[in-house]
């Protein structure tokens, strides 16, 4: 149990999200419709750095008090810049379920670090939060993100017709999930291949 870091990967690490230091960058992400809609629960508009700092600080405070969510900043190992955000929300300990939010600064970072972050995220979900089921909601206009989740073993469970709206068009919402036994089986297969 001790000896493998939950937070440090090969190229990136999961660290504390710091509203003071990270907000200059993060507030620029609020011009991305998908990010701001998910992060601000549908309250869709770009936020100034000052406003967004307050919003993030409140979210982190609530999460720390209730254990209902866990926030991580994704950074290149040993470097201060934030390249992504990993959030476990909707944690229902009674049902052992939670939702994963994953955002990167751009598609380049998603392609480069997505798989590695996902491995850390899954290990944290199942081995530290001790969840049974981890789910996420994606839009069918984002195939690169879908591919990361599918490669990690998530199964598309539900396709909600026209449930999302971006840039003037309706899109289907895709609900994905992975269960702990499925993840454990994938770990065994990886070991076998090695």
């Amino acid at each position: 149990m001790i000896g493998t870091s939950l937070f440090i990967g090969n190229e990136i690490e999961l660290t504390a999200l710091d509203p003071e230091k990270d907000v200059e960058v993060l507030s620029t992400w609020t011009s991305d419709q998908e990010f701001v809609k998910e992060f601000m629960e549908g309250n869709f508009r770009p936020y100034s750095a000052a406003e967004f700092k307050k919003a993030i600080a409140e979210k982190i405070k609530k999460a720390n008090e209730t254990f209902g969510a866990y926030y991580f900043a994704i950074r290149p190992i040993g470097k201060p810049e934030i390249i992504g955000l990993l959030v476990f929300g909707w944690i229902w300990h009674s049902q052992q379920t939670g939702r994963l939010f994953l955002f990167f600064e751009d598609e380049n970072a998603l392609m480069k670090f997505g798989d590695e972050v996902m491995q850390l995220a899954l290990r944290y979900s199942f081995m530290e939060l001790s969840l049974h089921r981890l789910w996420t909601e994606l839009s069918d206009h984002n195939p690169a993100k879908m591919a990361i989740f599918e490669r990690a073993g998530f199964l598309r469970e539900t396709q909600r017709a026209e449930a999302l709206f971006y840039d003037g068009k309706h899109y289907d919402q895709l609900d994905y999930a992975i269960l702990k036994p499925e993840w454990k089986k994938l770990q065994e297969e990886v070991l076998y291949e090695k």
């Binding site: 052992q96 379920t97 089921r133 469970e157 539900t158 909600r160």
Partner: peptide
């Protein structure tokens, strides 16, 4: 209402 999918093992 149309069935659109199943959230597996969501209830414990």
């Amino acid at each position: 209402f149309k069935y659109e999918g199943t959230s597996r093992e969501l209830i414990y």
